[in-house]
Structure formats: structure tokens, C-alpha cells
């Protein structure tokens, strides 16, 4: 397995995650569904840090987060910090995470996304006069629910490219 194909797989999966992050639902879909958007980029990032900790560094995660900030039209630095912090935390316990069953990992995902979304919302409330909303809980729930799927798909793709 050459490192280039690995890098391409990682980049491609992150690109797809970003597309999913801004893909808007068709008009006929129910309104409430929009609140349950998993944080795709966080999930994909988490998977790669867990599987290939030496490949995904904190600075790269930070830069990706910066792009995400601009993509979502949010103040720069917030998603950047969140992704870097996630990488840091995952990095320090990746061996344990690997041993976990997928359901246990999903619980970790739930906690991580909950922290990130809560931090974001507190910042919005502080600086952008946003109202308190339960979105963070729905996002965390949706993220935990789709985690097994993300895990499976990324595992397949990384196995098929041979590493």
C-alpha cells in the first residue's frame, strides 16, 4: 500500500463529508429532518485519526476546520479549533477506541459531537446573539446513529485500497 493512495482516500472521504455537510435537502422533505444533520466532517476525521493516527496531524485538522468555517459561513477559528481538539483527544486514546465495539465508539462520538456543538452554540449565544436551541443534542444523536455506517464504509474503502 503506497502512501499516496492512502492520502487520496483520506482527502476524497473528507471532500465527500464536506459535500454532505452543505448538501441541502429537497423541498419535499419534512422540515424537522434538517435539524438532524450529523457532523459528517467530524465523523470522517475521527475515523482517520483512530485508524491512521500518524497520518492525520493536528495542524492539518486545524486547516481543514478553517475551510469548514468558511464553507459554512461561520466565524473563522471555531470549527478549526474543534477539529484540532478532537484530533488531540482521539489521538491520546486511539488504541483504546480501536478495541471498542462500534456501539461503544458511537457513545464516544455522541459525547464528542455534543461537546463540539455545545461549545459552538455557547459561542454563538455570546457573540452572535443566537438563541438557545436543542440542535446540539439532535446533531449529536444523529452523528452517533450514523457512526456505524460511516465506520463500515470507510473501513471497506480503506481495506479495498489495501491498508
Amino acid at each position: 500500500m503506497s502512501s499516496e493512495t492512502g492520502t487520496i482516500t483520506i482527502m476524497l472521504s473528507l471532500f465527500v463529508a464536506m459535500i454532505l455537510a452543505v448538501f441541502h435537502l429537497p423541498e419535499w422533505s419534512p422540515d424537522w429532518l434538517a435539524w438532524f444533520r450529523p457532523s459528517w466532517v467530524v465523523l470522517v476525521m475521527l475515523y482517520w485519526v483512530m485508524e491512521l493516527p500518524h497520518r492525520v496531524g493536528m495542524v492539518r485538522a486545524w486547516l481543514l476546520g478553517l475551510c469548514l468555517d468558511v464553507l459554512l459561513g461561520e466565524p473563522m477559528g471555531v470549527n478549526a479549533f474543534c477539529l484540532a481538539a478532537l484530533t488531540f483527544v482521539t489521538w491520546s486514546i486511539y488504541e483504546r477506541l480501536r478495541m471498542y465495539a462500534v456501539v461503544q465508539q458511537a457513545v464516544f462520538v455522541f459525547g464528542a459531537v455534543l461537546c463540539i456543538e455545545l461549545l459552538k452554540m455557547l459561542l454563538w449565544m455570546q457573540f452572535l446573539n443566537a438563541d438557545f436551541h436543542m440542535t446540539f443534542l439532535w446533531v449529536a444523536m444523529a452523528s452517533a446513529l450514523v457512526w456505524p455506517l460511516v465506520y463500515l464504509v470507510l473501513r471497506r474503502s480503506s481495506k479495498s485500497t489495501g491498508f
Binding site: M58, V59, W62, L66, P75, M76, G77, V78, A80, F81, A84, A85, F88, F127
Partner: peptide, 17 residues
Amino acid sequence: MIALLVISSLVFAIESY
């Protein structure tokens, strides 16, 4: 980690003001 936190806050602050 701390360095990135500082940079993030700096970017956030500079952009806000």
C-alpha cells in the same frame, strides 16, 4: 494543542473586530 487554541482564538478575535 495550546498553541492551536491560542491561534484559533486570535483568528476568531481578529475576524470579529
